[in-house]
Amino acid sequence: MENALTDFYLYPEEIHKLFRYLTDFYMRAMERAKDELGVDGFFVSDDIGTQKGPFFSLDIFREFFKPYYKEIIDKAHELGTHFWLHSCGNIELFLPDLIKIGLDVIHPIQKYTMDERQISEKYRDKICILAGFDVQNTIPFGSDEDVQKEVRFLKQAYERPEGRFMLTMGNGSTTDWKIHSLDALYHAALETRIDVMEENENESDYFQTGSL
Rank of each mutant, 00 (worst) to 15 (best):
203 E>Y: 06
190 L>M: 09
103 L>F: 05
52 K>Y: 13
21 Y>W: 08
9 Y>V: 01
113 T>G: 07
31 E>D: 14
140 P>Y: 14
150 E>G: 04
170 G>C: 12
152 R>H: 12
161 P>N: 01
174 T>P: 06
208 Q>N: 11
162 E>H: 12
81 T>F: 03
69 Y>I: 11
65 F>Q: 05
187 H>M: 08
191 E>W: 04
34 K>I: 00
45 S>A: 14
191 E>R: 02
101 I>P: 03
137 N>A: 12
110 Q>D: 01
40 D>Y: 06
129 I>D: 00
153 F>W: 13
157 A>L: 04
46 D>R: 01
149 K>L: 10
183 D>H: 12
181 S>Y: 06
170 G>I: 07
18 L>K: 10
20 R>T: 15
138 T>C: 15
159 E>T: 13
70 K>G: 01
41 G>A: 07
144 D>S: 12
205 D>G: 08
22 L>C: 08
85 L>I: 02
202 N>Q: 14
72 I>C: 10
174 T>N: 06
38 G>E: 12
105 V>K: 04
61 F>R: 03
3 N>I: 15
188 A>R: 02
177 W>K: 04
147 V>Y: 01
23 T>E: 00
116 E>F: 09
5 L>Y: 15
196 V>K: 08
99 I>E: 02
61 F>K: 01
4 A>V: 14
197 M>R: 15
199 E>Y: 11
128 C>W: 02
146 D>H: 13
79 L>T: 00
180 H>L: 03
176 D>Y: 01
67 P>G: 05
173 S>C: 10
148 Q>L: 05
189 A>N: 04
10 L>N: 11
95 L>A: 05
206 Y>E: 12
169 M>A: 14
186 Y>S: 09
206 Y>I: 07
70 K>A: 07
77 H>Q: 07
87 S>A: 09
182 L>H: 06
136 Q>H: 14
201 E>F: 14
7 D>W: 03
125 D>N: 03
60 I>W: 01
66 K>V: 04
83 F>E: 11
87 S>M: 00
136 Q>S: 14
113 T>E: 15
6 T>L: 12
111 K>G: 06
102 G>W: 03
105 V>E: 00
17 K>E: 14
82 H>G: 12
16 H>A: 01
94 F>A: 14
125 D>R: 11
77 H>A: 03
108 P>L: 06
17 K>S: 13
29 A>S: 11
142 G>P: 09
85 L>Q: 08
68 Y>N: 09
142 G>C: 09
53 G>S: 15
189 A>G: 11
59 D>C: 04
55 F>K: 15
176 D>F: 00
170 G>Y: 00
87 S>E: 04
166 M>T: 15
41 G>E: 00
95 L>R: 02
135 V>D: 04
124 R>H: 10
121 E>P: 07
174 T>K: 06
177 W>D: 04
178 K>T: 01
84 W>C: 05
96 P>S: 11
204 S>G: 07
40 D>V: 02
110 Q>S: 05
100 K>P: 03
180 H>Y: 07
208 Q>Y: 05
80 G>H: 08
145 E>Y: 09
25 F>A: 08
91 I>S: 11
127 I>C: 01
161 P>V: 06
